[in-house]
Simulated scan of single mutants.
Amino acid sequence: MSLPIERDVRRFRQIVRGKVRENLKRYVSHGEMLGRKGKDVVSIPVPSLDVPRFRFGDNSGGVGQGEGEEGESIGQGQGQGGQGAGGEAGAEHYTEVDVPLEELAALLAEELELPNIEPRGKAAIQAAKAKYNSVRSTGPESLRHNKRTYLKALQREISTGGYNPTRPNIIPVKGDKRYRSWTSVDEPMVNAAVIYVMDVSGSMTDEQKSVVRNAAFWIDAYLKSQYTGLERRYIIHDAVAKEVDEHAFYHTRESGGTRVSSGYRVCAELIEQQLPPAEWNLYVFQFSDGDNWGEDNDRAFTLLGERILPHVNQFAYGQVESPYGSGELLGQIESRFGDKHDNLVCCEIEDRDAIYPAIKTFLGAGR
């Protein structure tokens, strides 16, 4: 039987979940919780949750007593119409609520109707895991099994004739104590790696990188819910490319021209040297404004077609709209590879509001 406080907590969580679901599209589009991300939870602002309560007033006048005219309001609270402090209601108040990343991913999957991913190839790694499946008479107090300890003490009291049913007083002694014990078992641990490739040339602005950041946050959340482990790698490029950490990926200033082949080359080398497809489920997400140096296209498409597409679960190309980019790369990739590789997904991301449908396009195939 659950305690009232437990029912209240469950009810509160259901209300919070409903509020998050109502505002999920706005969270995805505008990234309001990205700066509040912790290790396993995100602090999300939700509208204040007011708990209804009775408010008792002054009933000294009684019902129907005193003078008055028909239609005149009764009771107190008829002010003088002054403009004192607090005369107007404020804007809607918000409360910070911690929501597990796993729950956010589940909400996203429900709202966008995302399928579960079927791992490909031999991407299963055996990992040792402790499984508590037995009880022993020695161990640390932190693993003491209280129920087994009590039962052992009760058996001892009954067997020695010391048990009094009318005044039961069971006090375990050292010999009664029982502790949880474990054995190590091998469990398959399916790993995945996601590689983000972003153009940081002069035509990519801070707004475009913010769109990429929001999309990557939700892609990470969903993939983490599908795999035991998720490795993230980041590549930036203008005319040259390099692997960087997450902070540099989102904060590198724009400069230089654009050679997409440089980003593909670093991505291919990363897969070949550190993330062999036989051991990893691989996802590549490329973000660009569609610009590329014309003479670089053949080199770039050779790398993509021969060293990346055949080895990944999915290659997703998202083209963010920029006032400076040509936007030609999207059509070129689709015409070159669209009919040959079913693991290729492309879409345009015109602005922040387009992030939500873009995520469904990227992840809806369940690869």
Rank of each mutant, 00 (worst) to 15 (best):
E207P: 00
L223N: 10
V41A: 11
Y222I: 06
E141H: 06
F56W: 11
H251S: 14
L230N: 01
K129H: 07
Q332P: 05
R7H: 13
V63N: 09
Q78T: 10
G57W: 08
A192W: 00
V46N: 00
E88T: 12
V240W: 03
W218H: 06
C347A: 15
D289I: 09
S2W: 09
V42T: 03
R13V: 06
E272Q: 15
F287L: 05
K224C: 05
Q83G: 12
Q332I: 13
I170L: 07
E103P: 00
V99Y: 08
S48K: 13
D238V: 03
Y234Q: 03
G84D: 03
Q314N: 12
R53G: 14
R148V: 10
R13N: 12
R367L: 12
V9C: 11
M33Y: 13
D220F: 05
W218M: 05
D206I: 03
C346N: 00
E70W: 12
V51N: 06
I349V: 15
H311N: 11
M1Q: 13
S142D: 05
E22K: 13
A153M: 04
K242H: 07
E113S: 14
H30M: 03
L223A: 00
R156D: 10
S184W: 13
L329I: 00
G31T: 07
R148P: 04
L363W: 01
A153K: 01
D353R: 11
Y356F: 15
I117V: 15
V28M: 15
G86A: 06
V20H: 09
L151T: 01
G229M: 13
R167K: 14
G139M: 05
Q65N: 11
I74N: 05
S184C: 02
L309N: 08
Q319N: 09
P4E: 04
P4H: 08
H93D: 15
F54I: 12
T149F: 04
G290H: 08
G257Y: 08
V46S: 06
L114I: 01
F315Q: 03
F337T: 05
Y317Q: 05
V97K: 09
V135P: 03
A268S: 15
G338H: 09
F337I: 01
Q273H: 15
G82T: 09
G139A: 09
V211E: 04
L34M: 01
A124P: 03
K224T: 10
R178K: 15
D298K: 11
D342V: 05
I235Y: 03
P115L: 09
Y132C: 05
Y196Q: 10
N23D: 14
A91E: 15
T361W: 04
F287I: 03
E306H: 14
E6R: 00
Q208Y: 00
K129C: 08
K122T: 13
L270W: 05
E295W: 04
E96A: 15
G263P: 05
V266D: 06
Q14T: 07
A192V: 00
T149M: 00
